[in-house]
């Protein structure tokens, strides 16, 4: 796939995201450009558009095209217990502190199709905390939120998920948490009950509750620095004093203007603590 030629495409590209923002209030204007360009190029091919303005015109005139375009503009990959070392560190280092709160609140920001939120729910259930914990899981992608809400995943992914779960320190067997129906796995109702899935954008929305833990993994990499700072500002404000922030394993606060509001808590797992 060719990337878009930089010169003329620049202003067209900006125009596309200004127009989308005006019309639909989705703000992609400060996303990291290099990969966004590739995704727009892929969308051009998918929608059979020769030019960015052509794509813009179609997305603006037909909300359904825009909904479909969202799938190109965002990256939705996720797994249960993705990066087991992260969940292991949460279990060993963060849960003991969460336990000291009467009713902890946890926010999974950028939850995609829900796997991360369900992983946390399973972990908290095994630690005896799920009953008194509220998990919020938010994303901007409506289709993904629907999948998340349903909690139904392809069964053939579960061999890997089980391996992750055990490496993450799982205390039972992952099969305790789902029932297999044909080629699907349906997650337990008790897990779903603990999670509130909702639409929320780190680019445009603000704080909605005080949290003890925010898990925001593999979302910030898609933002340019200014937008990362905006999102981290919201997260920082949402966290209580000594609350925790977990990032993706390749993400860091080092280049952020909010770095000084946190200390490293489990550096290898990219878990930070709000000061």
């Amino acid at each position: 796939m060719m990337a878009l030629a930089p010169s003329r495409a620049d202003s067209e590209f900006e125009h596309l995201f200004e127009a989308i923002y005006e019309r639909y209030h989705y703000d992609f204007r400060r996303y990291a450009e290099a990969s966004l360009r590739r995704r727009v190029a892929a969308a051009l091919v998918h929608f059979g558009c020769d030019t960015v303005p052509h794509l813009e015109q179609r997305a603006l005139s037909d909300p359904q095209v825009f909904t479909e375009l969202l799938r190109f503009l965002t990256v939705q990959v996720s797994d249960l217990f993705r990066d087991p070392t992260y969940f292991r560190a949460l279990r060993d280092e963060v849960v003991p502190v969460l336990r000291t709160y009467p009713s902890p609140k946890v926010w999974v920001a950028g939850c995609a199709t829900g796997e991360e939120a369900y992983s946390l729910a399973i972990l908290l259930a095994e630690e005896g905390l799920l009953e008194r914990t509220q998990i919020y899981a938010t994303d901007i992608h409506p289709e993904s939120l629907r999948v998340a809400q349903a909690g139904v995943y392809a069964l053939d992914r579960f061999a890997r998920f089980s391996e992750n779960y055990l490496q993450a320190g799982g205390r039972a067997s992952l099969s305790h948490y789902y029932t297999a129906e044909y080629s699907s796995a349906v997650l337990a109702r008790s897990l779903k009950k603990a999670i509130l899935f909702a639409d929320h954008s780190l680019a445009t929305d603000s704080v909605f509750a005080e949290m003890q833990l925010v898990s925001c993994r593999n979302v910030l990499i898609y933002f340019e620095r200014a937008l990362q700072d905006r999102a981290l500002g919201v997260i920082s404000e949402a966290l209580c004093r000594k609350g925790f922030l977990g990032l993706g394993l390749k993400e860091t606060l080092r280049f952020s203007s909010h770095a000084s509001e946190f200390r490293e808590f489990v550096p290898d797992a990219r878990i930070y603590q709000r000061l």
Binding site: M1, A32, E33, A34, S35, R38, R39, V75, V77, N218, I221, Y222, E224, R225, K250, F255
Partner: peptide
């Protein structure tokens, strides 16, 4: 580059990582 992530250079001359589809 880290395994399993794409590595990109932004116009501001900093890196970005992404988990877009393999190429």
């Amino acid at each position: 580059a880290s395994p399993n992530y794409h590595l990109l250079v932004e116009r501001e001359h900093c890196f970005s990582l992404s988990m877009d589809e393999p190429v």
